[in-house]
Design a protein around this nucleic acid. Structure first.
Length: 569
RNA sequence: CGGGGUGUGGCUCAGCUUGGUAGAGCGCCUCGUUCGGGACGAGGAGGCCGCAGGUUCAAAUCCUGUCACCCCGACCA
């Protein structure tokens, strides 16, 4: 079997899963974010796929396989040919017709259903596929964790009403819980932003790992869990009492040369950041909007977008800042703007008074600024990014941060795609209605890498049995020893006949090499045929716990089931 | 897309500053010794020094361009 293990890999591979998959001879890179899966990786991917298949089938989803090569027409119907952006890998055929390699399959499946399902009697329907996806990531990295070509399970459900969509969503949610539990993962389902796919309710499934790219917000006293990009801040209902306006000094301009950052202003004026009002100009669907947050808080684009029910939201560029505030960025404020713009303030700003803001003038700030007295806020909303220690929005407990790897995402899509593509059905009254949809993804190849992130030690991978490429690693210490070779061959045949997946190391290598490779590859149970072969005695060792002992060869088949129950301990 | 870095036998890297016959370790092949945690000795195979121009008597080395890959950031179901 082709398992080209390596003693060392280049310094560029930094993630444990990336280094170990290279070293264990599982993967080889062909181009940035594109890998060949060698036999061990292929077997693990197959294992992961099978767990996913079983749980999908269990909830009544039907497996199909759609083309990776998609004509552009469908994607023009939904507008995503233009809006999906440079992540879309596009190409032309010999007739110069536009095609793309599918990064996801809402268009294709919606096209299928609009042609084939026209009656409420056929609904609800649940379909899924396991297939290679293509996304031209800005920066592929970390081996299989973020590739440009990767394996994904995507499922889609279609409904005549919201109730069955809710049921399907719950069904998928629980299926995902079973899948990740069976794969031995410590994970959390978190509230998330739906991003470019769109839709309403959605959850991400995160594998907890310090190396993860996402930050999760978890409550320490209830089960609230959210991605930081959307996590809500609790406890902003009660307004603090503050002095009546008359007791606060009137606004005063002070010179703050070159102090354009919070840090510089606090230093120059000798005040703490929470006395500052940070003013950020956003470009929201083409309209400038001033967003106010407290100086020690960060504005959150996703929340701003949602607060204004907008499609696009990004920080305004320098030219817009100059036009609206009359000053370079760093000196914006809500008082004395050159243009009338909407002002959105975070709830924490409600409690600010006698605060410091930019003066809308280069090298100047204003003191004693107080909301409602000195300027009007159009809308108070939760628009800041959660900080560790903030109150939980559900129970008032304390929010803590944790890192995670996103391995699954479930969405209620609604009718976004069915309306765009006129995918309709006839209801009981014979009325035409758009199909109601849900979509549900799992990154299969990423999941394999995430399992390694959570299951490895200094010597290599420590696979959970459900994802391991083999269940048993049989090692003949010295193949030149007749007793050892004979006994090992015999046991191999016997174990395989018993239906066990066995990797047999019959190489003419020294024992040390075999043991090192064995630890690296990480198969849960090792059976060593060595010096006691003449007495028909072999040794077992559980990879993860290191527990080992001797067994008689005759007893092996009987005792293996019991041993295999202990390997994940 | 911005910043930084690297391209030299299969792998990890040195050599480049200061141009002058392409190196080491690991791996691979042969023989011998060894044989339970990455053995030892002897012999051997293997490289258009990423690619294209330029400078020079002479370029892995200097210059220009280009491509690829990696890291940080931004972005991203």
């Amino acid at each position: 079997m082709l398992i080209p293990t390596l003693r060392k890999v280049g310094a560029e591979a930094e993630m444990a899963s990336h280094r170990l998959m290279l070293r264990a001879g599982m993967i080889r890179q062909l181009a940035a974010g594109v890998y060949t899966y060698l036999p061990l990786a292929h077997r693990t991917l197959y294992k992961v796929e099978q767990v996913v298949r079983e749980e999908m089938n269990r909830i009544g989803a039907q497996e199909i396989l759609m083309p990776a090569l998609n004509p552009s027409e469908l994607w023009r119907e939904t507008g995503r040919w233009d809006t999906y952006g440079p992540e879309l890998i596009t190409l032309q055929d010999r007739h110069e017709r536009d095609f793309l390699l599918g990064p996801t399959h809402e268009e294709v499946i919606t096209d299928l259903l609009r042609n084939e399902v026209n009656s409420y009697k056929r609904l609800p329907m649940s379909l899924y596929q396991i297939q290679t996806k293509y996304r031209d990531e800005r920066r592929p990295r970390s081996g299989l964790l973020r590739g440009r070509e990767f394996l994904m399970k995507d499922a889609y459900t279609f409904h005549a009403d919201r109730e069955t969509l809710d049921q399907a969503y719950q069904g998928m949610y629980h299926a995902y819980e079973r899948i990740f539990t069976r794969l031995g993962l410590d994970f959390r389902a978190v509230e998330a932003d739906s991003g470019a796919i769109g839709g309403t309710e959605n959850h991400e499934f995160m594998v907890l790992a310090d190396s993860g790219e996402d930050t999760l917000t978890l409550c320490d006293s209830c089960d609230y869990a959210a991605n930081i990009e959307t996590a809500r801040v609790g406890g902003h209902e009660g307004e603090k009492s503050r002095p009546v306006a008359e007791e606060i000094s009137t606004v005063e301009k002070v010179s703050t040369p070159k102090a354009s950052t919070i840090e510089q202003v606090t230093k120059m004026l000798d005040i703490s950041p929470h006395r500052l009002m940070k003013s950020l100009l956003f470009d929201v669907d083409g309209e400038p909007v001033l967003v106010l947050v407290r100086g020690d808080h960060e504005a959150n684009e996703v929340k701003v977008k949602h607060a204004l029910d907008a499609d696009q939201c990004e920080l305004a560029d320098e030219a817009v800042v100059q036009r609206v505030t009359g000053a370079p960025s760093g000196f914006a404020g809500p008082v004395g703007l050159k243009e009338k713009v909407r002002i959105i303030a975070d709830h924490a700003v409600r409690d600010l008074f006698d605060a410091v803001t930019g003066a809308n003038e280069a090298d100047a700030h204003l003191l004693h600024v107080t909301p409602e007295r000195d300027f009007q806020v159009d809308h108070f909303a939760d628009v800041r990014t959660v900080q560790e220690g903030d109150p939980c929005p559900h129970c008032g407990g304390t929010l803590r941060f944790s890192r995670g790897i996103e391995v699954g995402h479930v969405f209620k899509l609604g009718t976004k795609y069915s309306e765009a593509m006129q995918a309709t059905f006839l209801d009981r009254e014979g009325k035409e209605q758009p199909l109601i949809m849900g979509c549900y993804g799992i990154g299969i190849s990423r999941l394999a890498a995430a399992i390694i992130e959570q299951h490895h030690d200094d010597n290599g991978i420590t696979w959970p049995l459900t994802a391991a490429p083999f269940a048993v690693h049989l090692i003949a210490v010295n193949m030149k020893d007749e007793n050892q070779a004979r006994l090992a061959e015999q046991l191999y045949g016997q174990l395989v006949q018993n239906g066990l997946e066995v990797l047999f190391d019959d190489r003419q290598e020294r024992a040390g090499v075999k043991f090192k490779d064995s630890d690296l590859i990480g198969i849960p149970l090792r059976i060593t045929v060595g010096s006691k072969a003449a007495e028909e005695v072999v040794e077992y060792k559980i990879r993860r716990s290191g527990e080992s002992g001797h067994l008689s060869a005759q007893e092996l088949s009987n005792q293996l089931p019991e041993l295999l129950k202990q390997v994940d301990g």
